[in-house]
Amino acid sequence: MAFLQKFLIRTLYAVILLAAVLVLNFSMMHLAPGDVADTISQSMGGADEEVLAQIRADYGLDQPFLVQLGRYMGNVLQFNLGYSFFYNAPVTDLILERLPATLLLVFTAQILALGIGVVLGVISARRPNGIASHFVTMLALFGYSAPVFWTGILLLIAFSLKIQWFPVAGMRDVTIEGGFFTHALDVARHLVLPVITLGSLFLALYSRLARATMMEVLGSDYVRTAKAKGLTEREVVYKHALKNSLSPVITLAGLQFSAVISGAVLVEAVFSWPGLGTLAFQSIIARDTPTILGILFFSALVVIAGNLLTDLALRLVDPRVGGKR
């Protein structure tokens, strides 16, 4: 089972990478000025050096760096990401509570951007001077240049305040009663604007790349062969050309996973989406080190998982990737 072996090796790499991420994150947070003791003393209305030292001793902050790091790594190994002094809850609970909301936002945006991007790319590649082609160019310009939070606020003003199609903030309306579908529909309504905001940037990226690769593939020898077989235009484009032009787009989408997550922080802040982004934003302001570290850890996890998924998807699309020989 060469495939299983490869998968195991990849997983091993992923674990090593994750450990490296942990060490780096922890070191960086340690290097930054200020710590939890400052935050706690501030919330108490100020404290003298003695009390500060006491707090640091209580939380083990007076120990040497390596000892602190070792303790932290040991805790993470037991799935314990520490305790948030700001939220007064275990970090793992905090994150797991908000992870689904972020995953929902991120994956919906990614999948929609990918799907629509590829379709737009294909249409515009077939007619390089058509309306769709110009639209892709415009979209790319807009997507690249408009900051996510600006797009978000603009959409909010237009579609929540002026035309009241979509809710302003949050993920669900607590006043709504009903079954599963009513709630799902409610979440979907809340999801529309954040997804458009987050997805537009990536839609621009993907549609441009899909257009370029599709144009290249349409001029290739095997597409000529497909035409020479007497296949219909539809078969030539959607069977022979499309599958070949997918690999670069999937690769890019995999690489963009981290950007999608950091984009999610901004989008969640704008739309008060109750996900990891909002949590990250608040905990950074509160200097809640364990929570920040936990979120960084989880986003690293999501990125690595995304890369593994990308690898799998590439194998499905292109037999040469697997090295089947």
Binding site: S220, D221, Y222, R224, T225, A226, K227, A228, K229, G230, L231, T232, H240, K243, N244, V317, D318, P319, R320
Partner: peptide, 25 residues
């Protein structure tokens, strides 16, 4: 009509065997 003829009544072999077949099928 041309599609019906192509590959059926008149077919063609190309110069570049390395690139004339679709790599993913």
């Amino acid at each position: 009509r041309l599609r019906d003829i192509r590959g059926n009544d008149i077919s063609m072999i190309f110069q570049e065997p390395m690139t004339s077949l679709n790599p993913v099928y």
